[in-house]
Nucleic acid binder design. Structure first.
Length: 269
DNA sequence: AACTAATGTGTAG
DNA sequence: TACACCTTAGTTA
């Protein structure tokens, strides 16, 4: 589930597995052979996430830049023969990290990493994040808050699930323009993301239901294991708060999910 | 077993 | 707007 929480979790997992080692690097798939050769045997430094980007520092200003995109996976576990298309394997005698299907897997310098980070808006999962930087752009934009929340240059790490859930939890109409949002509403959205996303880092999944709404969820979904959410992918099913059907609409090529009763707006959708 | 959609983003037409 | 990435969960047969 590659929204920001996934990448922060992976940075932690990589650091636990590889800190203090000099892993072997290879590209079983063959599409990162040269980069892997550059990293092979280099001393591992530290992994960091910023939004949905993952950066791994190695000795001598060699950095690995990974973006999983929609279907990419990075798994870390005991050494086994690779399956599927493994773009990059980092391996010690005990542990292998296998990267499949990323949209970015590249060797970078520290300067290049800094330039990449400079393009990203504040990340609710980072202690150094400044929400005012996002607000400065949001309150001057006529784009919808739904579009703004997904724009990684405005804030980073929020994807389609956290977008739908944060807007629901703050009871905000997704189509409201940034110019119309109000500072209080932005503060509520940001504060909620700052509380919500670390839960995703610890659990590896996105759960957003408040305790008082959990009962309605559990009676409607006995034994469900995946994330417990208010709106995301619940099209046509009853809202856990008001019972009216969750709505969906494609906006900028992505499905947007919301409850028109709990998140009322002035315009017809 | 086969098929589809998906948490994302860059590029080409 | 379409495609590429090429995995995986979920659905349909």
């Amino acid at each position: 589930m590659p929204e920001g929480h996934t990448l922060h979790r992976l940075a932690r997992t990589l650091n636990r597995a590889f800190t203090g080692t000099s892993p072997q690097a290879s590209s079983p798939q063959g599409r990162f052979t040269e980069g892997a050769a550059e990293l092979d045997g280099a001393a591992y430094g530290e992994a960091y996430a910023h939004g949905k980007h993952l950066f791994v520092a190695f000795a001598d200003d060699r950095w690995l830049h990974v973006h999983l995109g929609l279907i990419g996976k990075l798994t870390v576990g005991t050494v086994r023969p690779p399956y599927g298309a493994v773009r990059l394997r980092l391996a010690t005698d005990e542990t292998a990290g296998d990267l499949r299907g990323p949209i970015v897997c590249a060797l970078r310098t520290g300067d290049e990493i800094a330039a990449q980070i400079a393009q990203l808006g504040p990340d609710p999962l980072r202690a150094d994040a400044d929400p005012d930087l996002a607000w400065a752009r949001i309150h001057r934009s006529r784009r919808s808050i739904a579009a703004l929340l997904m724009d990684q240059e405005i804030l980073s790490g929020v994807g389609n699930v956290y977008r739908a859930e944060a807007l629901f939890r703050a009871r905000v109409d997704p189509f409201r323009p940034g110019t119309d949002l109000g500072r209080d509403t932005w503060d509520a959205l940001w504060t909620d993301l700052v509380e919500l996303m670390p839960l995703g880092v610890s659990t590896g999944r996105i759960d957003t239901l408040e305790p008082e709404d959990l009962e309605a969820h559990q009676s409607a979904n006995p034994g469900r294991r995946r994330g417990r959410v208010y709106a995301y992918r619940r099209t046509g099913r009853p809202c856990y708060v008001c019972g009216s059907p969750i709505r969906t609409q494609v906006v900028d090529g992505r499905n947007l999910f919301w409850c028109a009763e709990c998140q009322p707006g002035r315009r017809a959708h």
